[in-house]
């Protein structure tokens, strides 16, 4: 019996271990951190008063476990980045002051991440208005939430999806008073009013990334990080609505979208969900229309010639 029990114990330890290896967040309610940090409320035993207490969780500290599981960092447990000391509650006050790893601490100079060009991103970012005005306080995390980050631009082939993901990053501050005031003295985001001049504003916001007009496009980078000051943003319609549309250099740089952008066939164009007047011509239809036009013109000229000849006779 003893042997049997110990085998059982061994096996359960083993399965538990492999399970936690695969996914820390399978069962948030039983996760040391998430049992509180994924809930609206949390309960603990107050040793001082010797009572069970239930309190509201600070909404900014609630983690969305579904997004967490879909993010690129889902292989890490909380204490891989946050101090192990957080496992005690109440958390020690000085833990707040401990430095957290930045993106480059892990990803900088790493061969296996070379294609993401972390150093180049850093270099471009340091030229941006975000860095110029707020310096190192403007961390990557201000836009890229490490908990949830997913490389949408690389993986999605849907323009609308990429645009939504990207613009959400900008709007999370530029359309949110509390977060905006973190870095800016201003307390009033005015995105909508500032873009009043733009025709079909809503449609533009849904189909065009903010960075399309607000960054300097660099060929070697997939997503440009050099965010310009608002005076330097693009305002000319023709930058996009033209044959050499800027959008082809930025959004359509992604391989997954490029294939469709360059597929000149009618079907290829039709499955392209992002139509930009002036830059998306359907070559097959263009040729067809030219043929019809010149056929009509030729018909008229021939007819006219005969009319003139007959009249002269």
């Amino acid at each position: 019996m003893k042997v049997f029990l110990s085998i059982l114990l061994f096996l359960s330890c083993f399965t538990f271990a492999t399970r936690t290896m695969a996914q820390y967040y399978d069962d948030p309610k039983n996760h040391d951190c998430l049992k509180c940090h994924s809930q609206q409320t949390y309960s603990f035993h107050n040793d001082m008063m010797d009572t069970e207490q239930k309190r509201l969780m600070n909404p900014y500290l609630i983690i969305d476990t579904i997004q967490l599981r879909n993010g690129v960092h889902h292989n890490f447990d909380c204490t891989d980045c946050h101090s192990y000391e957080y496992t005690t509650y109440p958390h020690t006050a000085t833990l707040k002051l401990e430095p957290l790893s930045t993106c480059l601490d892990c990803h900088g100079g790493d061969e296996s991440y070379a294609k993401y060009e972390f150093e180049k991103v850093q270099e471009e970012f340091q030229k941006s208005i975000h860095y110029k005005v707020y310096g190192d306080n403007f961390t990557c995390a201000k836009c890229h939430n490490q908990h949830y980050y997913a490389p949408a631009a690389r993986n999605s082939s849907s323009v609308v999806e990429i645009v939504e993901y990207s613009n959400k990053m900008c709007l999370s501050c530029h359309n949110d008073m509390k977060r905006f005031s973190l870095v800016s003295g201003e307390t009033k985001p005015t995105v909508v009013a500032i873009h009043d001049w733009l025709p079909n504003q809503e449609l533009h916001f849904q189909h065009v990334r903010c960075i399309e007009c607000h960054t300097v496009v660099v060929d070697s980078l997939m997503v440009s990080h050099n965010i310009l000051s608002k005076e330097n943003a693009l305002r000319r319609c023709a930058e996009c609505h033209s044959a050499n549309s800027m959008l082809k250099a930025s959004l359509y740089k992604y391989q997954n979208l490029q294939e469709r952008a360059e597929d000149g066939s009618v079907l290829g164009m039709l499955s392209n969900e992002n139509y930009v007047i002036g830059s998306h011509q359907i070559p097959a239809l263009k040729i067809l229309s030219l043929i019809i036009f010149f056929a009509a013109l030729a018909g008229i000229i021939i007819h006219l010639t005969f009319r003139i000849i007959i009249k002269k006779k």
Partner: peptide
């Protein structure tokens, strides 16, 4: 003119629209 994809035309894209 707005579908032609010409970037430079003698009146602006916006006015054409």
């Amino acid at each position: 003119s707005m579908n032609s994809g010409f970037e430079k035309s003698f009146i602006s894209f916006k006015l054409i629209i």
